[in-house]
């Protein structure tokens, strides 16, 4: 049965309802690339999502269309998902002691009292 549409462009396709099915084969959409977006030159690149592409050049093209339609963009990176090596959330306890390591923070070192004390004793 032919499909009659309001849209002349659809009518020109000459569609009919007998043609259905599953036309896309496995892996036809290509691999995925993780997309990193940099707003201003000098800023950090931020992970924004993924695109499907058959090669890195196409991935850049897809990333531009997907993640750089608005606002400012100065640079995009794409990295194949399979090339990302990551920690597992299950092992997140390896980071547990980090907040306790205050000796890495500037705020852990308080000297003003000592200096004031010294000045009082020697210049006073």
């Amino acid at each position: 049965m032919n499909i009659i549409s309001l849209d002349p462009r659809v009518n020109r396709m000459g569609l009919n309802t007998d043609e259905t099915g599953a036309p896309i084969s496995a892996n036809e959409e290509g691999s995925t690339y993780e997309v990193f977006h940099q707003k201003k030159k000098g800023a950090q690149h931020t992970h924004v999502g993924i695109v499907h592409a058959p090669n890195p050049e196409m991935a850049i093209l897809m990333a531009k269309e997907s993640f750089a339609r608005r606002g400012q963009t100065s640079n995009i990176w794409v990295v194949k998902s399979s090339d990302v090596y990551a920690t597992s959330y299950e092992d997140a306890d390896m980071f547990d002691t980090t907040p306790e390591k205050v000796h890495r923070e500037a705020s852990a070192y308080k000297l003003r009292d000592k200096i004031e004390n010294y000045k009082e004793q020697h210049n006073g």
């Binding site: 995925t32 992970h47 998902s81």
Partner: peptide, 8 residues
């Protein structure tokens, strides 16, 4: 090409 489930 081998398909890998994306990370995020």
């Amino acid at each position: 090409e081998k398909y890998v489930v994306p990370l995020a």
